[in-house]
Amino acid sequence: MRGFAAFARKEFLEIVRTWRLWVLPGIVLFFALTGPVMARFTPEILRAVAADQLGQFTLPDPTYADAYTGWIKNLSQIVLFALIIVYGGIVSSERRSGTAVLVLTKPVSRGAFILAKATVHSVFLAVLVVAGTLVTWGGTAIVFGEAPGGALWSASLAWLVFGILFVALMTLFSVLISPTAGAAGAGLGAYALVSIAALWTPLGTYSPAALTGVPTSLALGKSVETFWPVCTALLLAAALVALAVTAFKRKEL
């Protein structure tokens, strides 16, 4: 895997020194900071602005679980959509700008090029999720006075696996589809398909599609099957990266 370390180092520096440092981290930290506060005060806000419309319906008092599910919901929707859009050009942007030509005429294998990107950005996502979960955990403890760690961390780590699966998927789409918007559209379409697939019980229990619902269940402290969804998602992510490498080797630059 010639050139992996040098190219991975470049990828890391590119995150630290370009817009990449602000977009995903900004979104993640914003929701991590505001999530517990919103969970705590949303019922009060609703009562204040729409009390006459609630009628006999009484809003339950908020708990730490509301903060946890809010965090997972934001990861599963806004953060995931941002990830899909940001990584739509993870490979194609280097082809368009000509940097891939300069790098790949050096003794760097195309496999190392793809693998370095998938690895560094998966690690980046892991750091973001861990940092965001820490902030959510601390914020929840401050706002609600209690914040059991097990439910939050198991839910966040289960979602992280789902996020890594989408980093791998977007790497493949970015190899196959040159326009960033096209790859991002394919990524959003894939998310819709996965969400629909999760409705069928076998897929919704054992396949990566289960990870659309498992994190929320874990955040609520429920006992759900996690082994098979996590294993199949990691295997599928590895297969998608392998496919991206194969497809990239066949591409003419």
Partner: peptide, 10 residues
């Protein structure tokens, strides 16, 4: 050296 070399601008 390609005809229009692409660099990492940062």
């Amino acid at each position: 050296l390609p005809d229009v070399p692409g660099f990492y601008d940062w």
